Amino acid sequence: MASTSDFKRVWFVTGAARGIGARIVDAALAQGDAVVATSRDASTLEQRFGAQPGLLAVALDVTSEAQSAAAVTAALGRFGRIDVLVNNAGFGLLGAVEEASADEVRRLYETNVFGLLNVTRAVLPAMRARRSGHVINISSLGGYRSGAGFGVYCSTKFAVEGLTEALHAELQPLGIHATVVEPGYFRTEFLEGSSLVVSPRIVDDYAPTAGQVREAAKRISLNQPGDPLRLAQAMLALVESATPPLRLPLGTDTLQTIRDKHAFVERETETWEQLSASTDFPKGT
């Protein structure tokens, strides 16, 4: 078995059995790094990656704080350190905000937000002890601009963005980086049933908005413009950087989304500036 000193980096990747997570694991292993790959079912990881000296497959339901702590303990027991945490586990919810049930919303937050927090809290003590590490949280173009049909999902990614901004400020003095990665539409299985829940309730009034998005998702699935293999290579470049960014948009669609939102916010702020500024106490009081 290879020793821990044989590996330049040790990655801990959640949601590693398919999609973006699996591509990141492949890329890290291919360049000789060690990877702790996690999924709810460890057998899917073994089938996907096979046995490799640098791979530790661990069963992990991120919604369990106890399982998160146990997975990190196993990772440190095997490799002695975690250099890069990739919080990738998550799923989508398609439907208008009103169409989503309380249970659907709760389950989405349990994985996309509370699960991310469980794993991050478990990993950070070891990173702080070494004064080294990189926390990478996978968001979305929907974490920068929300839209009809994906409002609840986008709200979880807005939470991920806010958490990462705070982590960036809190961890930087400790020598630890934090980056939120914002992929656009990449050609993975995300819009298929395994990663996307579609609210069964349909309100006819939302047919022109969220309803149109429901139909568009069917057409887009497996025809997305982004190349997940190139995304994985971008992740390798990200962790190589001595000064990684707080935000890393990936895909021309995300870049355009950011530009469009900035322009919208600028126009609206200018239009309402007088009313916005009128709420301060008068100067001198």
Rank of each mutant, 00 (worst) to 15 (best):
P53F: 02
G54V: 00
G54N: 01
L55Y: 02
A57H: 06
A57M: 08
A57K: 12
V58W: 02
A59C: 03
A59H: 03
L60Q: 09
V62G: 04
V62W: 01
T63W: 10
S64W: 07
E65A: 15
A66P: 02
A66R: 12
S68I: 01
A70N: 12
T73Y: 00
T73K: 14
A74S: 15
A74H: 11
A74R: 15
L76P: 10
L76K: 06
L76N: 04
G77V: 13
R78L: 09
G80V: 12
I82D: 01
D83M: 12
L85D: 07
L85A: 04
V86P: 12
N88T: 11
N88M: 11
N88S: 05
A89E: 05
G90K: 13
F91A: 03
F91Y: 15
G92P: 02
L93Q: 11
L93M: 13
L94T: 15
L94R: 14
G95L: 07
A96N: 12
A96F: 06
V97C: 11
V97D: 03
E98T: 06
E98M: 02
E99M: 14
S101H: 08
A102M: 14
D103G: 00
E104N: 11
V105G: 07
V105N: 06
Y109Q: 04
E110N: 07
E110I: 07
E110K: 06
T111H: 08
N112S: 02
N112H: 04
N112T: 04
N112D: 04
V113I: 11
V113H: 06
F114V: 04
F114T: 08
